[in-house]
Write a protein that binds this DNA or RNA. Structure first.
Lengths: 201, 201
DNA sequence: AGCAGTATTGTACTGATGGGCAGGGATGGC
DNA sequence: GCCATCCCTGCCCATCAGTACAATACTGCT
């Protein structure tokens, strides 16, 4: 059972070899050429176009796992969506890697337990209660804050929101500050990503 | 390792015993009383309040799998969302059940492969992914511009994108400028909305 | 009357963002 | 060789975004 670790350059991780004695570090190009059906391929998420590589190798029948230095639920979903069967931290101990390998070779999915809730929560809202999701996110806001949040979610600048609501730019910022605090996001980018999972009415 | 099969009345399935010799058929009440940390519990989805039972037992540390006579992606998500680690057809062959047990006892998730695509596809789109629609919007971009666009679409700042691609912030800006011009958007907010398939214009 | 919450606006500051101007290096077609 | 394109980078500047530290006013509730 070949174990291929696909990384960009020199992030050789000793515990990879501790987990799999026969592990080989390869470049994305080498992975494309060598990986085949049944092989275990570990793809670092910091290489370019990793999702395309995952899809290619998974389609070829390889068992693909994605390793990340900064695991997030979104990236976990991107990995699974691309065809990966496992997603873990790049610095996971050797025992964990062998466990991931065992699970994914038996038709299982492996995602860190701390990400599972978010991943499945998002998935559940997508197929089940997607509609009431936006209410959930916006329910804690006042009428005015909600109006600002919706305008910002359409990509409007503070100045444009101010014109639309006929208030000053300073007031828009005040509302936005309250929105960020209540929703626990740090800026309008994150706000948009949060609200982007709902359908605009 | 105790194997408990929670079912309503008399749907005793022979292959359950074929998979686990020490399997015991129990009622929901018995399961509540007996199941503990590390036990494998198989819950039929045709019993009442099965989701509540799954959550209770999972919270207690049991490995809970849900069995259904009519598996659907929505029910799979309900099961996982309730805390189950596996979801399979009630009439699965014995070898499959042992495989599910193996996977779920190693922190893995087990869902039938034919449901995985729907489950993960829905979740991914819900969180702002949408791979193939993105390709359409990104087709006119160069490789480097596409990498920048995707990173920005995840909410990363110029500084973060620069670190990820190992280039300077100025170069990121240069790529972004080209992206904005090609896609006809004015800033990164509009870009995010464009890549999330929203009706921005 | 006093308090809590909301809405509004001001000044001022820091950091992020977008872009103009000006290059250098690599690649590939003609 | 020339030119186009892409990739990378520097300096500089105008603007935007977010926030700290304020103030004023209205509302509902006790």
């Amino acid at each position: 059972m070949t174990q291929l670790f696909v990384c960009q350059g020199r992030d050789e991780i000793p515990r990879w070899r501790a987990a799999f004695a026969e592990a080989r570090l390869v470049t994305p190009q080498q992975a494309r050429a060598q990986a085949g059906h049944g092989d275990s391929v570990w793809v670092m998420s910091n290489i370019e176009e990793w999702q395309g590589l995952v899809t290619l190798l998974a389609g070829r029948g390889a068992i693909v796992n994605v390793l990340s230095y900064a695991p997030t639920s979104l990236q976990a979903l991107q990995a699974l969506n691309a065809g990966a069967r496992g997603y873990a931290h790049a610095l996971s101990p050797a025992e964990l890697l062998t466990q991931v390998d065992l699970v994914t070779h038996h038709q299982g999915i492996w995602v860190p337990t701390e990400l599972m809730a978010q991943v499945m929560g998002g998935a559940y809202r997508a197929l089940g209660g997607g509609a009431q999701q936006q209410d959930e996110a916006l329910s804690g806001l006042t009428d005015r804050e909600r109006a600002v949040a919706l305008a910002v979610a359409e990509g409007q600048s503070n100045k444009e929101v101010a014109r639309r609501l006929e208030i000053t730019e300073r007031t828009v910022k005040a509302h936005l500050g309250a929105i960020f605090r209540k929703l626990g996001v740090r800026d309008r980018l994150q706000l948009i990503l949060r609200l982007a999972q709902r359908e605009v009415v």
